[in-house]
Amino acid sequence: MSTDAIATPTPEQMTELQAVTDRARAGDHTAVPRLRELLALFPRHGAYFGDLALQAAGVWIDLAAGPDLHLRESLAVKLDALRRDLLGGSADPVLDLAVDRVALTWLAANYLTAMDGAAVKHGESPRLQAFRAKRRHQAERAHLTALAALVALRKALAAPPAAAPLAAPVLTDRAAREAVANRLSGFFDGLPTLARDGAKAAASN
């Protein structure tokens, strides 16, 4: 892929996406149409973030493997397999970026776990051990957050997006409010009530 084809998102585009996302997060339903428009533009930037993730993965692999070419190759193969498994054949650029996030945090968490283990093994100073343990915990937390986001995203993308506004309809008059059926009413209709059971038991006695 040539780098000319990659559209680098401008800071203004990212700032707008952040602002519109914040508005939608705060419950502003008017932000949703613009959010969808911005997301529709995203596939053009997907390649840029993909390249960034590739660079980051390369740096983590360099750190972990050092001059060991076998380990370097093994890590690259493992990372590819992980990305393929997590992507599950999807071509969605949003999911692709979420998978990149999981793969990177997985690499970072594993590298920092190995470093933490080495610090304990070599009897390094407690302050250095504490520093490495703290970084390991941060990396593990970041990995779990990335996984949670990926799981939610896969569920959301599997279902069709909500076409209607996200707001619940506001029922102004009393008749309209009363017309809303209780979703559990049908469920209770078929069940014997405790009072009815009690009366039957009394009649049989």
Partner: peptide, 10 residues
């Protein structure tokens, strides 16, 4: 950011 935007849009 993009995941949050996509989830909110869905």
């Amino acid at each position: 950011l993009v995941a949050a935007a996509a989830l909110l849009a869905h």
